[in-house]
Structure formats: structure tokens, C-alpha cells
Design a protein around this nucleic acid. Structure first.
Lengths: 194, 194
DNA sequence: GCAAGTTTATTGACTCGTCAATCAACAAAA
DNA sequence: TTTTGTTGATTGACGAGTCAATAAACTTGC
């Protein structure tokens, strides 16, 4: 029962299924057949559209990073003016419900591991790391001047750390709790007067 | 040419080889044969001593956590008296050269992933997470009182984050740089007077 | 001392399952 | 009839775990 124009739908379904499957399994050791079954098709079709398992993973990683980027941009667009508001928005965006969900977080962790071996995955990651750092620094400069770089670094590390903790937590990830930790750190940094 | 009393030597060699192999490959998708070859024996012998690949990984994880614990304890024993010194010692211990080395960091990251699926790995991790948190809190209480819990959380997340960053960095992990970020955070928290 | 028997160390060869990737074939739309 | 979608069946490789066989070291009873 072939419907025309299926390609984009199939690809999207496979990407979604990949994130879910990797998230649930908590591991990249999932089979193409598992992913394809969840996406409602045969493994042959998955190969037809993506060519290889590696490409399926990369597409899924791209989707995760795209979603993340969109959420940060969205939060920024909706933010009140002024550097501090925008800073808080970037942070809140980093823990948006879309990205900060069990499956997605677990997939994140696994894609970090993928980036250790796959140059293309690493490239993707770098793009987003750089974008985040530059966003943070840009808003921090008017607030903390020369310390902007150091604080941006600290915030980046903190966000990563909170993600990891969420991936390993037994209870469901708690947005508010995560935000509290990171915002608390920012409070301290902004308090400094000198 | 069997030498008697080989078991402990073989086991240690396998554990070491496992950490190296996983670290270099940047992935748990390494074969028992690879590990065994690196440890200078046949894969059959690895199975003979550990029973399964999973057990080999767990033994390696135990070794990593044991080393980490020893380094923190060592730093603490050598620390000047007083809560702040001890706090700094715990942090410095967390980035001791033994634990904070490319291979080991990469292995850490992979063991995090393992803990997502393996209950025993999770158990091990929890023991060490709890110990770290309780150590930090104990020293923080006299310094920041009621905020001890929150600050300990923040420090824990930060340390994890810095490890992840090191795992994904292109240059070799830099102890001083890592310490700077975490100590900087602690400075801010200790600065607060209220 | 030492032969016979036991325990420990060690491996090459094998089994058996799994899985990525391919392909031939079929179905429907254009 | 060409293009697009789709799959069941198959291939080929790889890898965990097993096993039988070998060899050296210890033990025991003499």
C-alpha cells in the first residue's frame, strides 16, 4: 500500500522512533529492526531511506539538537528585554519540556557517547556548544564584564551536569529543580559587585 | 606455561585493559577478544575468570570508583584542618590525575551509560554519589549553614558537568582548568554573607 | 626422592545467535 | 512503463560463550 510522498513522513517517523528506542533502551545498542518496527515499517525500508544505521543515529541527533536550538530561540524571542531576562530565558529554554524529558535526556547522553567516536556527531555537538556559549557570553558581558567568559563556561558545565544527573536519577526529571540549581548559580555570579 | 596464583594478576590485567580499551574506543562496543588481547591472554581465559562480558565491565567500574574514592580520601587526609580546606581537598581529589585522565574520563562516561541499563552498575554509582554528597555537605554546613544541601547539589552537578566536557573536549583534559571552574563556583557560594 | 593423582592455568576450535545490509520481487501511483 | 514505496527472505560477518584438550605446578603416599 504505497502512498506517494511518503519519504519525509517515513524519515520523521524513523527519527522519532530512534530517539524513543534509544531513550528507552538507555543505549545505542538497539537494532535497526527495533527502530523500524516502532516506526511501523520494515527494517529494509529504514535502510532504504537512510542507507545505514549510523545515518539514522545522526539524523536523530540532528533532530534533538534542532529541537534544543528551537526551544532556546523560542524562549529568547519570548523573553523580556534586558540581559538578565534573556540569560534566564536561555537557561529556561535549555530545560524546555521538549528537550528535558526522560527519553530525550537519555538519548542525549547516548549521543554524547556517539560523539566520542563519530566525527560528524562531534561536529554537530560543537556547533551547538559554541552557539550556547556565545549566546550566554553575549548576555553576560553587560552584567559581569570580563568575567563573562568564565561564567559562561561555568553555566555550560552546570547545564551539562544537571542533564547527566537527570539521566541517572531514579525519579522523573524535574524541570523546576534543575532550573533552581542553575539559576541559583547565576544569582551568585550576578551578586558579585566589584 | 601456567604460573600458579595467576588469578589476581589476570583479573587486574583484564580490568586495566578494559578501561583502556573502552576509553580508547570511546564506547562499550568492544569485544572480549580485544580486551583479552590487550591484557595478553585469550578471550577464553577472560571468560574463565569473569564469566561474562558484563561482569568484566562491572569489575572495571568498581576499579574506577575505588580509585576515585581513594583519591578523594587521600586528598582529605592530606588537607589542612578547617572545613574550607577540606572542601577544596575533596574537589581537588575529584580531579586527581588518576581519575581525571582521558581514558578514565571516557570510561566514566561509558559507565554512566551502562548504569542506565544495569542495576548493579547503578547501585555502585549511587554509593559513590551519596558518599560525595555527604562529604561535601558535612564540610559545607559550618560554612553556609542551611544552604549546604543546595550548594552540595550544585557542586556535584558541576563536577559531573566538567567531567563530561573533558570527555568531549578535543584537547587533553586540563586539571587546572577544571579546578578553576569548580573552585570559582565555590568562591561565589562562600562569599555570600547573610 | 618419586610416581600417581589433583588442581590450576591456558587456549584453539567450535557453536549458535544476532544483526546490518542487500536484493529480488511485488504494488500502486504518475 | 517509469518512478516510488515496500517487504520477506537471504547473506555474510561478527562475537559471546563453551568445551575438550594440553601443560605445568602442587600434593600425597610411599
Amino acid at each position: 500500500m504505497p502512498k506517494l510522498g511518503a519519504e519525509p513522513i517515513r524519515r520523521a517517523a524513523l527519527v522519532k522512533a530512534t530517539i524513543e528506542t534509544v531513550g528507552e533502551a538507555g543505549s545505542l545498542e538497539v537494532t535497526v529492526a527495533q527502530i523500524a518496527r516502532r516506526a511501523g515499517m520494515s527494517s529494509a525500508l529504514a535502510h532504504h531511506y537512510f542507507g545505514s544505521k549510523e545515518q539514522i543515529f545522526l539524523a536523530a541527533m540532528r533532530a534533538i539538537l534542532t529541537l534544543y536550538g528551537a526551544e532556546v530561540r523560542g524562549a529568547l524571542a519570548a523573553a523580556d528585554p534586558g540581559p538578565e531576562s534573556r540569560l534566564r530565558a536561555i537557561i529556561a529554554g535549555s530545560f524546555s519540556p521538549g528537550s528535558f524529558r526522560r527519553e530525550a535526556i537519555s538519548a542525549w547522553l547516548n549521543f554524547y557517547v556517539l560523539a566520542q567516536t563519530n566525527p560528524e556527531a562531534m561536529r554537530l555537538l560543537r556547533v551547538y556548544q559554541r552557539r550556547l556559549r556565545s549566546n550566554l557570553q553575549h548576555e553576560l558581558r553587560p552584567l559581569v564584564g570580563g568575567r563573562a567568559e568564565a561564567v559562561a563556561r561555568g553555566l555550560g558545565a552546570m547545564i551539562d551536569g544537571v542533564y547527566i544527573r537527570a539521566a541517572l536519577a531514579e525519579n522523573a526529571p524535574d524541570r523546576c529543580y534543575a532550573l533552581e540549581i542553575v539559576n541559583e548559580y547565576l544569582n551568585r555570579e550576578l551578586e558579585v559587585r566589584s
